[in-house]
């Protein structure tokens, strides 16, 4: 058996196993790592096919995107919710199974259609070499034959970027919905007394200086009163305290 076939089977096996790993492991970060592994092996298959540019773009774009996915997992997913996430939603599982089978059928149909009955494309090894290589050939095709599709895609992406910027805008630039800040974040006054405090200014302006807000309220700034805390401060920050 020639070496490249052996290497292909090695890559394909790792790719498939890591794809299974993505859905099989319980830890979402591990899922992300398996996804990276899977995509890297797909990039390796692209290299074996002689499509170096596609391979590198696969690594830069897709593996880079998974990094953001892993970040989302780290920042947004509560480990406490995970058992329910994996076992408690039968509808999602069946729909997922159905969609996966559908996708498999589609891809199978495309491959069969192409290899059994279809005609081969116009690009040959010689025509690709004539324009200077794979990367150049891809660029030419993208910017001539598929220019409209390319521009539409970039427009859609631009809309996405603008949407993200609008969502992340501070209030002073976006639609004016002034959020009144009350002095409730501070633990320096007793619980349930914020109604007695003067309402803070709106938006991005800083909190008022402590004396201006409290001195006007008799009975609040009494010296020697006890600091009331609903929870031990460490409970908010210690990792693991929520898990176990």
């Amino acid at each position: 058996m020639p070496w490249d076939v052996l290497i292909f089977y090695l890559i394909a096996t790792i790719c498939t196993l890591s794809a299974i790993g993505v859905v099989a492991v319980n830890n979402p970060v591990h899922s992300g790592v398996f996804l990276v592994l899977c995509f890297l092996n797909i990039a390796a298959i692209f290299v074996m096919l002689g499509a170096e540019f596609l391979a590198v773009v696969q690594v830069i774009v897709y593996t880079g995107a998974i990094l953001v996915l892993v970040l989302f997992v780290l920042m947004l997913v509560d480990p406490d919710d995970l058992p329910e996430f994996h076992t408690g939603r039968p509808v999602q599982r069946y729909v997922g199974l159905l969609l996966g089978a559908l996708l498999l059928l589609e891809i199978g149909a495309v491959i069969l259609n192409r290899t059994v009955t279809g005609t081969s494309g116009t690009d040959t090894a010689a025509s690709i070499a004539a324009v200077g290589g794979n990367t150049q050939a891809l660029g030419r095709t993208l910017y001539t034959d598929y220019l409209l599709a390319f521009e539409v895609v970039s427009l859609v992406l631009t809309v996405g970027v603008i949407g993200a910027i609008v969502l992340a805008l501070p209030e002073r630039l976006g639609a004016a919905s002034p959020v009144t800040r009350r002095g409730t974040i501070s633990l320096a006054h007793p619980k349930d007394t914020d109604a007695a405090l003067s309402p803070g200014p709106a938006g991005e302006t800083p909190m008022p200086a402590r004396p201006a807000a409290t001195v006007a309220q008799p009975g609040l700034a009494t010296a020697g009163r006890q600091l009331i805390m609903t929870k031990d401060p460490d409970a908010y920050t210690t990792p693991g305290s929520r898990r176990s």
Binding site: V29, F53, V57, I60, T63, V70, T237, P239
Partner: peptide, 28 residues
């Protein structure tokens, strides 16, 4: 023939070393 992009691609994989190491340490 994509040498320069190859370097960028491996740079982008390298970040995983940092972020995964940071996550795995269980340290804030």
């Amino acid at each position: 023939n994509v040498g320069a992009l190859f370097l960028l691609a491996f740079g982008s994989i390298g970040v995983y070393g940092i972020i995964l190491g940071a996550y795995a340490s269980a340290n804030r």
